[in-house]
């Protein structure tokens, strides 16, 4: 008994850490999950049912559109940029500068990014003014910047550099010998990409795309600062649910919406983890 107790003693050192996470991470998550199935302390499925209502479905669809399109834009453009980076000298200044810049820009979201684009393409933004004065075209239009198209453009600003950061290790893992061996065995450049590099990079590319998808889907601050009215996407719908107390006649709708968000992100991240595991086995 005493021996066993003594052996368990060091585990007590974990108590502060676990306690803290319990209060500020687990309990909030549990509150969301439980709250989604409750109303005034009574169990109910009404909140979850409300997720099927028109406005919520619309917001979810828009959210999926924003996430998917920025993930694809980010993956393709970021993938090209990452490829441009690997063709640089491995320890050259260009490569270092680009990777550092990407590390910084991938973190640059939120209010500041929204205002950067308002200053650029807003009603009196620098580019809007410039184009209006020189070409006579009104880029501002009817305010697309503050709706889904604008969100897609602004999100691309952090999605592209994020892609560079997550995809670069996979590109770096492609060895020169593979290209040379393929060439020796008679492969043209196209055949090399089609049969060697393509299949090798595909899981990492898809995985990175999924990560970008989750990143966009979970983003809130940028959209919140950009769009002050209306709920074009799911995170903004949650904002409304939290600030207006009762939305669609349901006090606990916010919990159900948050749960929906957890589920989508969890599915996407599982796919990501599976794909990453596959690549890391190859590119050892």
């Amino acid at each position: 008994m005493i021996k066993a107790a003594r052996r368990a003693l060091p585990s007590l050192g974990m108590v502060p850490f676990l306690g803290y996470l319990t209060v500020f991470l687990f309990i909030p998550t549990v509150i969301v999950v439980v709250g989604a199935f409750q109303d005034d302390g009574r169990p109910t499925l009404d909140n979850v049912r409300a997720l099927g209502s028109g406005p919520v479905l619309h917001a979810l669809r828009q959210s999926l559109v924003v996430s998917a399109s920025t993930a694809v834009i980010g993956a393709v453009v970021g993938g090209l940029l990452a490829y441009a980076v690997v063709t640089c000298k491995p320890d050259g200044a260009v490569r270092r500068a680009v990777t550092s810049a990407c590390g910084v820009l991938a973190q640059f979201g939120g209010v500041m990014l929204a205002f950067a684009f308002i200053a650029t393409l807003g009603f009196s933004g620098a580019v809007t003014t410039l184009v209006k004065d020189s070409v006579g075209v009104n880029l501002y239009g009817s305010g697309w910047l503050f709706d889904v198209p604008g969100i897609i453009l602004v999100y691309s600003y952090f999605q592209i550099p994020l892609m560079v950061i997550v995809f670069l290790p996979a590109l770096d893992g492609i060895k020169v010998q593979w290209r040379e061996a393929a060439e020796n065995l008679g492969a043209s450049t196209w055949q090399y990409w089609r049969q060697v590099a393509g299949p090798l990079l595909l899981p990492a590319f898809l995985g990175s795309t999924l990560l970008l998808f989750a990143n966009a889907f979970a983003s809130y601050a940028t959209a919140a600062a950009l769009v002050s009215q209306g709920n074009p996407i799911l995170p903004l719908f949650i904002r409304s649910a939290l600030t207006s107390e009762i939305l669609l006649g349901r006090a606990n709708l916010g919990y159900a919406l948050a749960l929906e968000m957890i589920v989508v992100v969890a599915i996407v991240m599982t796919g990501y983890a599976l794909l990453v595991r596959r690549t890391s086995r190859w590119l050892r």
Binding site: P28, T29, I31, A214, A218, Y220, P235, Y255
Partner: peptide, 21 residues
């Protein structure tokens, strides 16, 4: 795993649940 968890749970979700806390 626990330390990396906040990457997968969106901040917005935590906010929703943390209000009572």
């Amino acid at each position: 795993f626990l330390c990396l968890l906040p990457l997968t749970i969106p901040a917005l979700v935590i906010v929703v649940g943390i209000a009572p806390v």
